[in-house]
Amino acid sequence: MQVLDFLKLKYLSEPRKALRFYLVLAFIDLLVFGFFGMHLAMAAYTEKKSEISLLESEVNELEKKKFSLIDMDAELSRLSPILDRINIAIPQTPLVQEYLRETSSIFSSYNILLYDFIVDYPDKESVTVRIRLLGDVEKLPEVVFALENTSRLSDILEVKAEDNKDISYLMDISVKIYYLDDLIRDPLDFEGSTNAKIDTEFLLKELKPAHE
């Protein structure tokens, strides 16, 4: 009966006993919900907040990358007719043999004899080629013009011509050709030129498609 009375909480009708009861209950409440509950919930909340901010920054970064890739893809689509020409103009390796083949055909078309072809590698981006020719000096401007307009990006450094009494003129042309050893990095490695834009107008103007 006493237990039943206790469970009926009859003693709560007595204010001082009720106060004691609620004090104990409040303490248990504080212990259970306050310390074990809210304390852990707060810790989890703080952790989750920082995780969210980290995830949000990652998602933002990925979105930026995505938009950047879409822009890049659009730029490359515009350049698709001349992409091959860009890679021929500045290949990944010096490809001197290809340059020799191309220039030889130019010289033979002008009936000029290739006398010397000396290659020097001054840095990792260019090759200096000293071409010595024997032939008619009057054809020199056209030959130099043709050398400037090969499929390779060329820079004429120096042109010399000397009267060779025995046969004809000995012409000495120094040309700098370029290459770029850009090994493919991680495709999604965005360090470097993420924000770099391609001047498509410039490239399309400089490297017109072959059929135009």
Binding site: M72, L83, N87, S193, F202
Partner: peptide
């Protein structure tokens, strides 16, 4: 877009030389 970044970077560098 697996190679877009690499190709773009390579074109940008080539454009600078040009």
């Amino acid at each position: 877009y697996p190679d877009v970044q690499a190709i773009h970077t390579s074109v940008v560098l080539r454009e600078q030389i040009l």
